[in-house]
Structure formats: C-alpha cells, structure tokens
Design a protein around this nucleic acid. Structure first.
Lengths: 236, 236
DNA sequence: TTAGTTCTGGTCAAGATGACTATAACTAAG
DNA sequence: CTTAGTTATAGTCATCTTGACCAGAACTAA
C-alpha cells in the first residue's frame, strides 16, 4: 500500500481512510433460561491496534462494490451467512477512533434467521457473544453496538423488523418472545396477539406447530417487503 | 493533487474519495400565498462534471475535523449560517454517483431559524430554492433531497424538531404552519393546540404577539434539548 | 381422569384522536 | 361607536387504541 510506508506528516496529508463494519444480530437460546436472546458475532484482532481484543467484522471498501454490497460481503466472509435484513446504521468519523490513523467507518446492521445462524462459522478468531454481555471491544465498537441495539428496539416498535429474526413460519408467541428479548420486558400475550392480528401483513396459515407440550399454536407467515434497505423507506 | 493526474487504472486502484454534503432547510414566506414554506440553498457547479447545474453545498473532509464539524463548516462557508439543528442523514456510496470518480458522500441535514435565514448570503453562485420546486440537480442530489424531506417529515411527527425552524418565541399557530408546510396538509387548529399543550417541553410565556390583525396570540417557548445530534438519541 | 400449561377470544375502563361547536378578543370598515 | 370579520382558545362527543384482566379451549404428562 502507498500510505502504509508514509511518515507522519504524509499520513496527515492523506485523506481519512474508509472502512465498512457490520453489527450482526441473531436469536439464540440463552444458555441459562433457554429463552431466545440476542447474540452477535465478533472477530478477534490479530494485529495492533487493540491486538487480541474482539471487534466488529469489517474491512476496507473495495472500489467496485456499493456500501451495502461491501457490508453483505464481509458478513458472508466472516460468518458464512446471508442476512435477511441489512440496513445502514451510521457513519462514525470521530478524530480519535483509532490511535494510528484517521478512519471513517460506515456501519451496517443486519438480522439473520435462526436456521441460518445455526450454521454460522465459528473458529478461534470468530465467536458469538450475547449482546448484553460483551466485554471491552476494540476501537469505539461498544458504543456502536449500543447504538445498533437502540436502533433495533426502535425499528421493532415501528413494525416490520421482528420477522427477519424468525424463520418463514412462526407462532405469535415466538414473535412475542422476540419483542421480549429485544425490549427486555414482558408483554401481555393476549394484548400482543390482538395487535399482531390487526396487521394485514401477518398472514394466518392453515398449519399448526406440532410437538409442543401444550395446545398447538397456529403458524403465521409475514408477507411484507423483504426489507433490505437503502431507500427502503419503511422507518425513519 | 496526487490522484487528479493519474490515469484510469491508477484511479481504479485509488480508494474512493470521501465528501461531506449538507441539506439545509429554512422557512421562508411563499412568494404567492405568503404562508411559510420550506426553502434550501444550493450552489452552482463551476466545474465539470455537471458544470452549471445546482448542487448541495459540500466539500472534502479535512483530516482534523469530525464529520459533524465538517458539515457545520461548509454550511457556514456557503451561507454564513449557524444551524439550530444538525444531524447525519445517510452515507451515499453508489458506484456511479459521479461520472469521473468514485465518491462516497456523507450527507447531513440542518435546520436554521428564520431570523438567521433572512441574513443568509446569496450570490451569483448561491441561491435559495423552494424545496418542492427544484429543477434537475447535479449528481444524485435530487434523490438526496427527497430522502431528507422524508426524514424531516418523520422527525416532525415524532416531536422535537419543528421548533428549530422557528425563533425563540413562537405562537402555537406558527408551529401549526410549520407542520402544514412540511406535511403539506391542513391540520385542525383546536386539536393541534390541544396536543401541543399536553407537552411539558412547550412552555407558556406571559407575553403575547402584538401587531397582528386579530386577537393577539400567546407566545410560547421550547425548553427541550438543543438537538445537535450525533448520539443525541431523540429519534430513530 | 385430572392437573398443568399454553393458546385464544373476550370484556372493561382509561386515554388519545378527529370532527365539531361556541365564546373571547382583537382589527377594520362603516 | 357599532358591527362585521377573523383568529385564538376552550370545550363536547363519538370513535379508536391501550393496558389489565378473565375465561374457556386444546393439548401433554402424570
């Protein structure tokens, strides 16, 4: 690379470098309660700065791909997954995000379905963590994850986002569990189902979920837009 | 500049360049009805590409300023104004935004108060336009303005943003006019004022607006957060 | 057969919303 | 000085939404 060998004053004159990072959320059963919880994959830094710490998956922007494509690519490269939802989160460009050089990161956030998430690659340097129990991350990545969580909660309240954490068929109780996991509070089952049933994009199927311990719940399907952002103006 | 003299293959290898642009909204009376309307300043391109067309104010990111500072700076440099609200809109990074090189633009949107807006610089190459009557703009700037308008409408519905288009003191009817201008529909005066009066951050002052043609309306004051974003999590 | 649990539909009161009416307070025309 | 015109402001009423709660239906496991 041209800039990597430059001295300090040359680095100063160089334009800020541009990177893409992705916050990837999936639902996994908690080890303790077994109830679904939010998890996300992180990669271990193998170089300075912050060598050894965990960080969001990311990398440079190749000149022949759009921002969203770059986010999808580094999602695929680190975890082997394809997102069911992908949206731009924010561009972080503070002066001191990295101690060695000025970096502007355009961060995306993604949701993946649990069938996918179960297949996710995991290795020495890629591991999944509970979103509410991350340690200290590299750079400003703790703040970025916090912001992504806040966005997720907001989008959830607005509508269409919960189904992208579930499979194609789901019960209304499963949707409620998603809300409870993300919002971290319990919701009245009867009131919650009344609200969902008033939405036209939630379609009742003729099938029921078998094999449970109690009365078999009806299965539903989401018929709204697939929801891969850019100008996908579903929500602010 | 190093890259400007490079040939095509060298340009390909170069990282995408990074720019900051700003969509600046202010309220001005319509020439026809006299009612307040949304306006925004544009600058004329004096070079190719798109020479002669109007474009959003913007420029490169200097290495010693944050993204928000850069947005505020080019706002000040083109119009002489200081924003009362400034928030990141979106990072636009499509492959073909500019015909000559790959540019990633981080776009901010701003609101300025009418007392300020009246003082705004205007010249041969800087002019204000009604937001609903722009012609064809340079690059993808029409789409960017559309997106900014959509965001403004959403933020308005959410709350705290309308007051940043008004001065320190305002009547409830003026707030309603802002809503009517932005949402482009009429609102019931009585119902609208009931809603505003239920908000604790709208404070009644002892004063009244004098000099009108009819019953003098009471003046109010907004006591909420000033609202210059980044992590100013007022709205999604 | 029965107890336990979830699924599902319903009621009820409190609060928010939209359409509308009525009065107050000012200016301008006569 | 009176009156018509206009905006400001308060209030009413029916409708819709929301949260708390109750009750029966449908299944499993003991």
């Amino acid at each position: 690379m041209y800039y990597s060998s430059a001295n300090v004053s040359e680095r100063q004159a160089a334009p800020p470098s541009l990177a893409i990072s992705t916050v990837i959320f999936a639902l996994r059963p908690s080890e303790t309660s077994g109830r679904p919880t939010l998890w996300l994959p992180l990669v271990r830094r193998i170089r300075e700065p912050f060598k050894g710490l965990w960080a969001l998956p990311g990398g440079p922007l190749s000149h022949s791909e759009s921002l969203q494509d770059a986010a999808a690519r580094n999602l695929r490269e680190t975890t082997g997954l394809a997102p069911s939802y992908l949206e731009q989160l924010y561009a972080f460009g503070g002066l001191h995000r990295s101690p060695t050089q000025r970096v502007v990161s355009i961060v995306y956030w993604a949701l993946v379905q649990p069938t996918e998430a179960a297949l996710a690659d995991e290795s020495e340097n890629v591991r999944w963590f509970r979103a509410d129990r991350l340690g200290e991350l590299a750079f400003d990545h703790n703040a970025i994850v916090d912001y992504a969580l806040w966005r997720l909660r907001n989008k959830l309240a607005y509508g269409s986002v919960a189904y992208h954490l579930l499979g194609e068929y789901f019960t209304l109780a499963q949707v409620r569990e998603v809300y409870e996991a993300v919002l971290d509070r319990e919701l009245d089952p009867a009131n919650f189902r009344r609200q969902l049933k008033s939405m036209p994009e939630i379609e009742e199927t003729g099938e029921f979920l078998q094999g449970g311990k109690h009365r078999p719940p009806r299965l539903y399907r989401y018929t709204g837009r697939p929801g891969l952002d850019p100008d996908n103006r579903s929500t602010p």
